[in-house]
């Protein structure tokens, strides 16, 4: 079996760097932390890059590192994050910018979720991973993914009030 070479790392980062940056921004809840988070995750992946199968896609491996790192960092900095979190803007139902404001509030509420719930929602609805793929990235069971997604969405809905239609199942 061959090994991945250093050049393949450069190619991977060039191809998937932006997508991973956006995922990192959503996972850690603060864009300014995303670059450092992604660098840290890629550095971890780089340590073992030569051992990865050159025939397989390295992105799930990198994504898993990214998600776990985001969760562990988020837990460590949870207190500071809550202190610095801005309160959501007031949503006016009849505002012409209602949809925009709603999405802004959604992001704020997404940041307020627990790190694991946030990670599940990002992987499911941003990365469009299946429940099985999400479970693999998080190192948990499919059942946990389902329950975390359900609870996360319920919490978002609760915090946003009744402006949204029920989630289609």
């Amino acid at each position: 079996m061959g090994r991945r070479d250093d050049e393949s790392f450069t190619e991977f980062v060039a191809a998937r760097g932006t997508a991973l940056t956006r995922t990192a921004a959503l996972l850690c809840g603060a864009r300014q932390d995303a670059e450092d988070l992604l660098q840290a995750a890629l550095e971890k992946a780089y340590r073992h890059w030569g051992r990865l199968d050159p025939e397989s896609d390295p992105e799930p491996y990198v994504r898993r590192i990214l998600v776990n790192l985001a969760i562990s960092r988020s837990r460590r900095w949870k207190v500071l994050r809550e202190i610095h979190m801005a309160s959501p803007p007031e949503v006016l139902a009849d505002s012409p910018h209602h949809a925009v404001e709603l999405r802004g509030t959604l992001m704020d509420e997404l940041r307020r979720l627990g790190s694991r719930q946030r990670a599940v929602l990002v992987l499911r609805f941003w990365e469009d991973l299946s429940e099985a793929e999400t479970a693999q990235a998080l190192g948990c069971s499919v059942g946990t993914v389902k329950s975390q997604a359900s609870r996360g969405l319920a919490r978002l809905r609760e915090r946003l009030g009744t402006n949204l239609a029920p989630m289609e199942r």
């Binding site: 980062v13 990002v122 949204l164």
Partner: peptide, 25 residues
């Protein structure tokens, strides 16, 4: 609009201008 769709849009808008620096590798 359902919550999941709104969430997708919100995340897309939030990260629209985020990109990886060319020196990332």
């Amino acid at each position: 609009m359902d919550l999941e769709s709104e969430l997708r849009r919100a995340m897309a808008e939030h990260t629209a201008d985020a990109s990886a620096p060319s020196s990332l590798a």
